[in-house]
């Protein structure tokens, strides 16, 4: 559009015409973002080089917090736990694709009712949900172990044994991430033109073939969006873990997530400096993972 020869003058004039109006409109938003997003990130970077006094006051301690990060055995375990959790929760997306397409079938009776049913986890309080699941996973009286006992299996301590606890939390995480995924995929499904299915039918494609050759490829933008959001949420695992594990849990040392470590350093041990380093580590991991996803999307996401 803009060729150098075409017009230096009109371009300059247009710029002047825009003047400060864009700033007026963007200003409130930008100030908000700067104050509530950029400044905290910058402050976190600064804090990561300091050690805090118990009642305020910081002193510079160089790279000591970073050195501590490399030696802390809790950190490596927390990274592993967070990754495992995120991967398991990401497995919920294929499941959500199936459920969403079943819900969007033409002529499905009670479709609205099912939609409400599947959306319920999203409107329930996370802490309440966690406490209910904690009961479901109880070793002695829980529903899960009762069901297992019917087929002759002596169920494990789901919430208080290492690894099992992570699995239990991941299952609940997956379950509570489904509603949002189903809503977004449902919207994506409604955006697929009916002609495509008709054409596919004419070409002799059955339901399964239609699902894999029409539905899934055209849903990839929604799936991509979901995988980004779900992964970011996964890396921020905290409230579920906190509420489901409870106090003095023997599995806690082996189940901590990165954000949980951040919380306990910042607010329980009053190590805001070290906690800032953990926060930056979380930021870096999320950034790297998201970048990777954007790179990989070129291979599998189809935009029309």
């Amino acid at each position: 559009m803009s060729h150098e020869t075409a017009a230096a003058a009109p371009r300059r004039r247009r710029r002047r015409a825009d003047g400060w109006w864009p700033l007026v409109f963007l200003g409130p938003l930008l100030i908000g973002i700067a104050v509530f997003y950029f400044w905290p990130i910058l402050a976190t970077v600064i804090n990561s080089f300091t050690v805090f006094g118990p009642f305020g006051g910081r002193t510079f301690n160089g790279l000591e917090n970073y050195a501590q990060l490399l030696q802390d055995s809790f950190i490596s375990r927390a990274v592993l736990n967070t990754l495992i959790y995120t991967v398991i929760v990401l497995c919920g997306i294929p499941l959500a694709v199936c459920i969403a397409s079943l819900l969007n079938q033409k002529g499905l009776r009670f479709a609205r009712f099912y939609q409400v049913l599947f959306f319920l986890p999203a409107v329930s309080m996370p802490v309440a949900v966690s406490l209910v699941w904690r009961m479901i996973f109880n070793k002695e009286f829980g529903l899960v172990n009762w069901a297992l006992s019917l087929v002759g299996i002596d169920g494990p301590y789901w919430v208080t044994a290492p690894w099992w606890s992570l699995l239990a939390i991941s299952i609940v995480g997956l379950w509570s991430s489904l509603p949002l995924a189903i809503i977004i995929l449902g919207a994506g499904l409604r955006g697929i033109p009916a002609e495509l299915y008709e054409a596919a039918q004419l070409d002799g494609a059955g339901t399964v073939r239609q699902f894999f050759s029409v539905t899934v490829p055209l849903l990839t933008p929604s799936i991509f969006f979901l995988s980004i959001i779900t992964a970011i949420n996964g890396f921020q695992l905290f409230d579920l873990l906190f509420a489901m594990m409870g106090q003095a849990n023997p599995a806690m040392a082996d189940t901590q997530s990165l954000v949980y470590l951040f919380y306990s350093e910042a607010f329980r041990q009053n190590n805001q400096g070290y906690a800032s380093v953990i926060a930056l580590l979380i930021l870096a991991i999320i950034g790297a993972f998201t970048l990777l996803q954007f790179r990989l999307q070129r291979r599998w996401v189809h935009y029309e």
């Binding site: 118990p54 023997p250 806690m252 040392a253 306990s264 329980r268 041990q269 190590n271």
Partner: peptide, 21 residues
């Protein structure tokens, strides 16, 4: 002086010491 900092470590590791693994 900062008892609550190591109280939190107790909460995390005592269960493991007494109960294993």
């Amino acid at each position: 002086q900062n008892t609550s900092a190591w109280n939190q470590l107790e909460e995390l590791l005592l269960p493991k010491i007494v109960g294993g693994p």
